[in-house]
């Protein structure tokens, strides 16, 4: 049991920033490989034409989830030291809805817009300016938003606790759900393609 390394003091904060940079390179690399530097490709998800957003997202979640689960079962990672952000259910659902609408209007989410901007997409750069303005407005209105922001606190809560099921069972259920979602995505793509006459 010696991971997460940072939490066990294997290196200091300065080193952690270099690691952040390296991990970021990997993150940006795979986002761009997937085609997520293109708003049109991302937005196609919401017209059932190209379900890459769902496929990439769920295969990433499943990979990291299974990896972390097995590493913790093997005693390599102390799962309790991996940061889980506390849940504030209503503000998070509201934020998700706003973000979803922003996604289909703007064509990106913050991470993908960085990749778009660095590969020369003007819309990605303008989008980032919008994000910065949005965060500024949020912060300036915070005194007014604050009561809602801290409403419906549920603390640090994960699905196995909520459902009262062992961690491994929930991991298995998520894998099954992802496989179902992949099958549905492939089916939907074929259906949409045949409707628009091939292509």
């Amino acid at each position: 049991m010696n991971a997460p390394y940072y939490k066990f003091g294997y290196f200091n904060d300065e080193v952690s920033l270099i690691i952040a940079f390296i991990i970021g390179i990997g993150f940006g690399f795979f986002l761009e490989r997937a085609g997520f530097g293109s708003s049109r490709k991302l937005a196609s998800q919401f017209y059932f034409k190209d379900m890459a957003v769902l496929k990439v997202m769920f295969s990433a979640i499943v990979t990291a989830m299974i990896g972390l689960y097995y590493l913790s079962v093997l005693g390599f990672v102390d799962l309790s030291l991996v940061y889980v952000s506390p849940t504030y259910i209503i503000p998070q659902i509201t934020g998700g809805l706003i973000l979803g609408v922003g996604f289909v209007i703007g064509g990106y989410c913050p991470g993908t817009s960085c990749v778009a901007a660095s590969t020369g997409k003007i819309d990605g750069m303008i989008y980032l300016l919008g994000v910065i303005l949005g965060i500024f407005v949020f912060g300036e209105l915070f005194a007014w938003i604050e009561p809602f922001f801290y409403s419906t606190p549920m603390g640090k809560i994960i699905l196995p606790e909520l459902l009262n099921l062992p961690y491994g069972v929930v991991v298995f259920a998520v894998v099954l759900m992802a496989i179902g979602a992949f099958a549905a995505a492939e089916w939907v793509e074929k259906k949409t393609a045949s409707k628009s006459g091939g292509n």
């Binding site: 922003g102 064509g107 989008y127 994000v131 303005l133």
Partner: peptide, 9 residues
Amino acid sequence: GGGLMGIGA
């Protein structure tokens, strides 16, 4: 869209 995303996030 970016503005809404900033607020939502």
